[in-house]
Design a protein around this nucleic acid. Structure first.
Length: 463
DNA sequence: TGGAACTTACC
DNA sequence: GTAAGTTCC
């Protein structure tokens, strides 16, 4: 009987998994493999690593229930695979096609020496499948999404054999111990599908209305699962499309459409990364590559640790450090503050996000940061500058979210919660919060910062 | 997926 | 005086 390897990377699930399906269809011995790649684990993204390792444990459990097991090996992938092929005599290696430049170089190296078969993709539609009529990839979201919607989505494969083919006797390594910092996300395919069903059963109905609210639980919180493929994006898209066909009320309909759009944004940024891998190193817009971004360790640190003096910015940044997650609206607000108010290079923010986010995904993170900084695809005009006070008032009207993450502002009246520096002395005394002592003064005047950013970007755009 | 400044409609 | 719409950055 032949042996095949299912090399799982960003597809940590059994259901609707094209690589696993293809491997199973060969009918041979199946070796489910995950490689601890020292290059990918070199960073400090401990929350994300903890989530990954949790997901691997769950995948192993699920495989064992079916008479198989996840084999863990560490080392450079081509060496690990080469050795495993020698050990097992495997004839084929199946893996899901990735979009990042490192992943693609790695897979090319492997394919040169071993029979690697890449199938499917980590998006709903693979980036190769969506192109303009002239064959060029899209660089603007709206036409991309039109082309995306015109493509039929192959039905998800949720049929799984109860027993998997037997596994040859192999050694496996144990996973490194990483402190799991929080229980916000329970790793694994089962939690992912549970969360999807919960979301589609409740919150998606109000998604369009509530998703921007920082103080409410209106978002799907599925991003960490999509990041590691614990949830099949194709399954998610199919389910929400089915649902939107059944929904009759316009609000629910709108919610489904808006959430589907978020899945399309994810596909879009993966497509951008796949077709323009240089966005890892530099701005998509050539004109924006030589910007004289400001350098300030102190200002960067104030932003990183939530000490800017703008409550909505600080609350978001502290939520990120404490939980490894940040609301999407918050990501835009803090990204605008770093790149527009402080004029600090978007890359600093992009790195900080990658270091802390459980859902940290290269494609989406680069896309989001370059969009906010106004240097990416999708002509994001440089004058789009978020006002942290207005954004706070609009999306956290009573300051509930702010008080949750900034306990030092707990007693500040709602009238001043978004701009506490305006609190008169007698009110500061009354609520026991001294601005400039218990909570910082704003590190910069937003109105002045806005004017500075407009001048700065305008002069660049004219050149 | 912004918002400031300005105009207009209406009370 | 203010909500709603428009223009410009």
């Amino acid at each position: 009987m032949s042996v095949v390897i299912w090399w799982t990377r960003r597809d940590l699930r059994l259901q609707d998994n094209e690589a696993l399906q293809a491997a199973l269809e060969t009918g041979g011995f199946l070796v489910p493999l995950f490689i601890l790649d020292p290059y990918l684990l070199r960073g400090e993204a401990l929350a994300r690593q903890a989530f990954l390792f949790g997901g691997l444990r769950e995948l192993d459990t699920e495989l064992r229930k079916r008479g198989s097991q996840l084999i863990i090996r560490s080392g450079p992938p081509e060496m690990v695979l080469n050795r495993l092929v020698e050990e097992t005599g495997a004839e084929l290696i199946f893996a899901v096609h990735d979009t990042g430049p490192y992943a693609n170089r790695r897979d090319e190296r492997v394919a040169r020496i071993l029979p690697l078969k890449l199938v499917g993709g980590i998006t709903v539609h693979p980036p190769q499948a969506i192109r303009q009529p002239d064959g060029k990839p899209y660089t603007v979201f709206t036409p991309f999404s039109k082309a995306w919607k015109a493509l039929p989505i192959p039905p998800p494969r949720v049929d799984l054999p109860e027993r998997f083919p037997p596994l040859p006797a192999l050694t496996t390594e144990s996973l490194p111990e990483v402190n799991d910092t929080n229980g916000l996300f329970i790793p694994g395919e089962l939690s992912a599908r549970q969360r999807l069903e919960d979301f589609l059963g409740n919150d998606v109905w109000m998604y369009h209305e509530v998703r921007d609210r920082l103080d409410l639980e209106g978002t799907s919180k599925l991003s960490p699962y999509l990041r590691f493929g614990m949830l099949s994006p194709r399954l998610a898209a199919t389910r929400v499309l089915e649902l939107s066909c059944q929904v009759t009320n316009p609000v629910g309909q709108r919610g489904c459409e808006t959430w589907l759009n978020e899945l399309i944004w994810r596909d879009f940024y993966h497509s951008v990364l796949f077709h323009f891998p240089f966005v890892v190193d530099t701005a998509f817009q050539p004109m924006m590559r030589a910007m004289p971004w400001r350098h300030s360790e102190a200002e960067l640190a104030a932003w990183q640790f939530g000490q800017t003096g703008y409550p909505v910015v600080d609350a978001c940044m502290r939520q990120l450090i404490a939980t490894g997650w940040m609301h999407n609206r918050g990501r835009m607000i803090v990204a605008s503050f770093l790149s527009k108010d402080l004029l600090i290079h978007w890359r600093e923010g992009e790195r900080w996000f990658m270091r802390h986010l459980i859902d940290g995904d290269l494609a989406s993170n680069l896309g989001g940061w370059q969009w906010t900084a106004g240097v990416g695809t999708d002509a994001a005009p440089f004058f789009r500058i978020f006002n942290p006070v207005l954004q706070g008032k609009k999306f956290d009207p009573e300051g509930v979210f702010i008080r949750r993450w900034l306990p030092e502002l707990e007693t500040v009246p709602s009238d001043y919660i978004h701009s506490p520096w305006l609190m008169p002395q007698d009110i500061q005394r009354k609520c026991g919060v001294r601005i400039g002592v218990d909570y910082p003064m704003p590190m910069i005047d937003h109105a002045l910062a806005r004017e500075r950013a407009l001048r700065w970007f305008r002069s660049r755009a004219e050149k």
